[in-house]
Design a protein around this nucleic acid. Structure first.
Length: 266
DNA sequence: AAAGACAGCAACCGCTCGCAC
DNA sequence: CGTGCGAGCGGTTGCTGTCTT
């Protein structure tokens, strides 16, 4: 690995902060020619940076349509909801926040949201340390508002599109979908989901989370790996077929989501 | 006013993945 | 099938501005 000193590439790439001139060069070049192959961008744009650095600068700072400034409460809640589902998949989270970059979201998480979660957890632990049910604090997601996951299959199209369902459904569905995430954030016996039960790894409602269909082929699919499971939604209308979201399929599960406001539709 | 501590953010680094050969 | 290369991602680092002592 690595080069002997005599074999090192001749080009000395600049590092550190970008100057306004460099930004201007990169912006002009990409807007005019597109980036194409990033490794050729610095050469063509006469920048003493490497392609990787150019790409990052463009994506995180120069790209048109970027939203700068503080995150709104709605964006914050979206990040929290998605992070509970996806973990540190910043690029996937960023896809649901137009104008925000993965780097920005990641920084925001590390500098603010993570601390906020910890504080909330501490506060909850303090208030509940005398309570007999310590698990409850965990199942309620550090005291944060529960994400609202709605299954579009169940909704009238109008409801899905105008969001009215979302505004009236807080007591109908609130939660997220992996089994352990259920354990973690979803209090199934707290009455918010009448008619739903969770038995032997199966969530039974109109649809069910069928843990028995989990593929064991990938040993890495631990019990905390929602992607190692198949989420099965049974349409409640007679004669209709079951629907699966197969987290083993390799498909980007986010592509199957439609997020509107703070509500995620499947 | 100066120095140290801290927080936020931009950028770098190392790794993985996909693709072409 | 193995190798090389480019792109993309996530963790980490380090710079800079602000706050505290």
């Amino acid at each position: 690995m690595g080069y002997k000193s005599s074999d090192k590439p001749k080009t000395k790439h600049r590092k550190g902060l970008w100057s306004p001139e460099e930004d201007q060069r990169l912006r002009n070049y990409v807007l005019k020619h597109g980036h194409g192959c990033w490794s050729s961008v610095p050469v063509n744009a006469e920048l003493q940076r490497n392609g990787k650095s150019c790409r990052l600068r463009w994506i995180n700072y120069l790209r048109p349509g970027l939203k700068r400034g503080v995150f709104s409460a709605q964006e914050e809640e979206t990040i929290l909801s998605l992070h509970r589902m996806l973990g540190n998949k910043w690029s996937q989270i960023a896809q649901h926040l137009p104008g925000r970059t993965d780097n920005e979201i990641k920084n925001y998480w590390h500098s603010y949201l993570k601390k906020k979660l910890l504080k909330a957890a501490e506060a909850r632990n303090k208030t509940q340390c005398s309570s007999p049910s310590s698990d409850e604090s965990v199942s309620q997601g550090f005291g944060l508002p529960k994400p609202k996951l709605l299954f579009a299959e169940w909704l009238a199209p109008d409801d899905v599109h105008d969001g009215s369902f979302a505004n009236s459904s807080d007591q109908q569905v609130a939660g997220i979908i992996s089994r352990d995430e259920f354990d973690y954030y979803w209090s199934l016996d707290d009455g918010v989901m009448p008619g739903y039960s969770f038995n032997e790894g199966k969530l039974t409602f109109g649809g069910k989370y069928d843990h028995s269909t989990t593929s064991p082929s990938d040993g890495s699919s631990g019990s905390h790996d929602m992607f190692g499971s198949v989420f099965k939604i049974e349409d409640q209308s007679p004669g209709s077929a079951d629907h699966f979201i197969d987290f083993n399929s390799g498909d980007d599960m986010c592509s199957q989501f439609n997020i509107s406001s703070d509500v995620m539709y499947i």
